[in-house]
Nucleic acid binder design. Structure first.
Lengths: 333, 333
DNA sequence: AGATGAGATGACAACGTTGTCGTCCTGAGA
DNA sequence: TCTCAGGACGACAACGTTGTCATCTCATCT
């Protein structure tokens, strides 16, 4: 079907190796020979087979694997964007997959990627046991974790967002605006960022001497619908919260819907920025950060590892910044 | 570095081929031998090399290439999501790249993907000359176009959105609400969907006997900032439009910003749904459709082609539906 | 003219796997 | 006991490329 170098060689009346030389611009080929070869190449529509190329000589495949939770979520698609930019600059292709927060799926994906001999892995880890990666790493497939660190046993680079700091800033902001009954919606407790943000929430309250009312803490919400119903429940309490901190973009959207549906004036600060956050009836105050940059940094770190650079495991923590827009400054009733 | 089947064979004291049989579950291996081999496999951390596997026997690489404009744009990331779902179901990996609407970049990407011998291509085409794909297709790499058809010369499957119909419905809606001075923001005229939506706009006006005021037609806007400034200009006219139709999600966001900044009450219907569109001060009426489904359908079509199925080039057109939320029903002043 | 050397080209092996085919062993049937 | 079938396993080639090394051709110099 597809012509090989041998076909090109036959047509050009030269040897296989000469074609290889032309294709790879190795030089040492006379101009007229080069022309003949090039003519044969375009006549046949020859494309070098990178599969064979990668095989021969244990070459690099010039590809990297990216495992995220869900591309359709803007947070992850922005990470993917950053990764793609760096990949492009380094002439790498990105093979990506979604784990949907399922450790089994993640493991299967990573396995497939390793079997395909990607040169490196970028992973937003789902489960809590990534020891199976140790052997992959030791066998020359470096890995960089994004957004969540691997467990202690695994020494690998990781690029994080300052979740605790961001959450504290958010809750601190609400406290300074006079709120004392501040609810918290957070994702599944097994997720690092979720527990970190919850920790930041508790710390901020603690610092201000405000006891945590566990009735206002609603962890384990991992989608818009879950957050919406949790928020609706909170609003239906006899003594509802006057403010809420939401742990990620999905939860923020859900909470906003519930608040709007209830016609409540609940103050809100959300983790992750949202497009149009500034255009809502009450513009949304958020803890913003740079997901694209996170993807970039992780990919750059990975490229250094792939180049063989030896350095102690890096832990990059990107800052957050509070964007004040209105919803976080609503006063308690 | 990474052990090969030969290493496993040596360690297990069997032949290469026996290892291959075990790894691929071919059968015909005694249980105790199988156990020895498996022990060696896990002791060495062996991973089958799919590169070699794909090479031998011209096997499929079990991967497909996806070229979109920009993963960070929700429209495209949703397409990617749909593709990923189908890929997962068919045990394929997705290698994706962003063209950023640059034909040269797109061509380079597709070339790289073909060199890597992806089993099929999914492309949101950027330029207007994809004849170079003909030879790839004829050589056994099927291609399916998404969102925009290739030029006539190229017979390939394509999955589209009913852009003309959607745009007509949007403008018709505005006309029925009494608007006569309706502006249109659209993307670069070279982009199929942009010109189709502009056509739908013109057709709808024509049907209602409303002449097109070219001063209100602003094509060539391809990002939020461009749309925002174009909309600001329109609002600053002596005789500003009372309504606007925006050709895609980026342009809708830009227009909304300008309208809000000007404190104008301009009616708006946008193509593409937006998260939170229903939560804005004036909820946004949109022409919605199913980008995830578009990705799915395209990937399914590609899988059929990859399986060798022969059928005439398909042209799937997915419907749009108007979601009435408020901004499109604002009356003219 | 013969030696020399640089430049151009080709032959061949190897990368890690799997398909083909051959060999060996065991147990059942004659 | 001999034959034979069939199961278990191994040897070998091939996929398409590139690195290594060998060969061949001239132009140049002595």
């Amino acid at each position: 079907m597809r012509p090989t170098m041998r076909d090109v060689a036959r047509r050009a009346g030269v040897s296989l190796k000469t074609v290889s030389r032309v294709v790879n611009g190795e030089g040492g080929v006379r101009p007229d020979t080069t022309a003949k070869v090039n003519a044969a190449i375009s006549a046949l529509g020859f494309r070098r087979n990178d599969i064979a190329r990668a095989l021969r000589g244990g070459k690099r495949t010039r590809s990297l694997g990216l495992v995220i939770k869900d591309v359709a979520n803007p947070f992850y698609s922005q990470i993917a964007r950053g990764v793609e930019e760096v990949a492009r600059a380094n002439d790498l292709l990105v093979i990506s997959g979604c784990s949907d927060e399922d450790p089994a799926r993640e493991r299967h994906l990573i396995r497939s990627l390793c079997e395909r001999r990607v040169d490196g892995l970028l992973v937003v880890p789902s489960g809590n046991d990534h020891r199976y990666l140790i052997s992959e790493i030791s066998m020359g497939t470096p890995a960089v974790f994004i957004d969540r660190p691997p467990e202690e046993a695994l020494e690998a680079d990781v690029v994080l967002i300052d979740s605790v700091g961001g959450a504290r800033a958010a809750v601190d902001h609400l406290l300074r605006h006079g709120h004392r009954r501040i609810a918290c919606l957070s994702d599944l407790p097994g997720i690092f960022t979720a527990s970190e943000r919850l920790r930041g929430y508790r710390e901020a309250l603690g610092e201000h001497g405000v006891p945590v009312d566990e009735a206002l803490v609603r962890p384990g919400r991992h989608d818009v619908a879950g957050a919406e119903s949790a928020m609706a429940e909170l609003l239906a309490l006899d003594d509802p919260p006057t403010a809420v901190f939401t742990g990620n973009n999905r939860l923020t959207v859900g909470a906003l819907r519930a608040i709007q549906a209830a016609g409540a004036g609940t103050a809100l600060v959300g983790f992750d920025d949202l497009e149009l956050a500034d255009m809502l009836a009450t513009p949304v105050t958020v803890v913003a950060h740079q997901p694209v940059e996170m993807g970039r940094r992780a990919a750059e770190l990975l490229c250094r590892r792939m180049a063989g650079e030896e350095l102690p495991p890096q832990r990059v923590v990107l800052p957050t910044h509070l964007i004040v827009r209105g919803s976080g400054e609503l006063p308690p009733p």
